[in-house]
C-alpha cells in the first residue's frame, strides 16, 4: 500500500496540490519527499526544476516504481524518524497528503523543519463543507475524492482540519510562512480565502522552524 493517504499523484494531470508544490520549489534545490509513493512528484521536480531529489517510502511496490521513475529512494517507515539526516540537509522537505497517515505527527513535523530549511505540507481538510454535511446528515464516516477509504481500511489515522493544523503549528513553534487554500469549486474559490476551514478542500502550507 502506498504511504500517501490519498490515491495517485496523477489523474492525467498532476494532482492540483502537487502542481502548487512544484510552483513553490526553487530550481536546483535539494528536496526530500516523505512518503514519495511512486516518485511521481520528484520526477516532475527533476524535469521541471532540475532539483536533486530524494524520497522515503515504505511500500515495496512503490519503491520499485520510484526507482523505475529515476528517483533515488530509501525504504523506511516514517515513524522511525529522520534521525540520520543532519540539520537543514535539504532545502525543502515535502509531506504531501501523508501527515494524516503517520503514527506520531508531532515528531514528524518537528523532524521536517529540522531536516529542511523549509517544510511543505499538503493535506486534505477534514472540516470541508462536504465532509461536514456527510457526517451531519448521513451520520457516517465521510468518504470523498481525496479521502476515499472506508473507516476500517484506511491509512489515514490522524485526520485533521486546517484550523487544527494552524493551532498545532503555533503550539509547536512552527511558523506558517504561506497557506495556499485549494477549494473544490469555483464558488469555493471565492469563499475559501474568507473561510478556509469550511471551503478549502485541501491546503498547502510552507513552514519553517521558529528556533532558527
Amino acid at each position: 500500500m502506498k504511504m500517501s493517504g490519498t490515491k495517485g499523484c496523477f489523474d492525467g494531470v498532476l494532482r492540483r496540490d502537487l502542481r502548487t508544490v512544484v510552483a513553490l520549489i526553487e530550481p536546483k534545490s535539494r528536496v526530500l519527499d516523505l512518503g514519495c509513493g511512486d516518485g511521481g512528484l520528484l520526477g516532475v521536480l527533476n524535469r521541471e526544476r532540475g532539483i536533486s531529489g530524494h524520497g522515503i517510502e515504505r511500500s515495496f511496490e512503490a519503491i520499485v516504481r520510484s526507482i523505475e521513475n529515476g528517483v533515488s529512494v530509501i525504504q523506511a517507515d516514517l515513524d522511525e524518524g529522520l534521525g540520520e539526516y543532519p540539520n537543514h540537509s535539504f532545502d525543502y522537505v515535502l509531506l504531501s497528503h501523508t501527515l494524516q497517515t503517520v503514527h506520531k505527527p508531532a515528531v514528524m513535523m518537528r523532524e521536517m523543519v529540522r531536516v529542511g530549511r523549509l517544510g511543505i505540507v499538503t493535506m486534505p481538510n477534514f472540516a470541508h463543507w462536504r465532509i461536514r454535511l456527510q457526517f451531519v446528515f448521513r451520520g457516517r464516516m465521510p468518504k470523498t475524492r481525496l479521502l476515499p477509504y472506508s473507516w476500517y481500511d484506511t491509512p489515514n489515522i490522524h485526520l485533521v482540519t486546517l484550523s487544527d493544523f494552524c493551532w498545532f503549528c503555533r503550539r509547536h513553534d512552527i511558523e506558517i510562512l504561506r497557506q495556499i487554500n485549494l477549494p473544490s469549486s469555483r464558488l469555493g474559490r471565492l469563499l475559501a480565502d474568507f473561510w478556509p476551514n469550511l471551503f478549502a478542500e485541501s491546503a498547502v502550507f510552507v513552514l519553517q522552524g521558529k528556533t532558527e
Binding site: 530524494h54 540520520e84 539526516y85 543532519p86
Partner: peptide, 18 residues
C-alpha cells in the same frame, strides 16, 4: 550502511526485497 551514507548526504537508494 544506508544511514551512514545519509548522514554524509550521499546519493543512496535502498530496498529490502521480499
Amino acid at each position: 550502511i544506508v544511514r551512514a551514507l545519509m548522514v554524509n548526504r550521499k546519493d543512496v537508494t535502498f530496498c529490502e526485497i521480499p
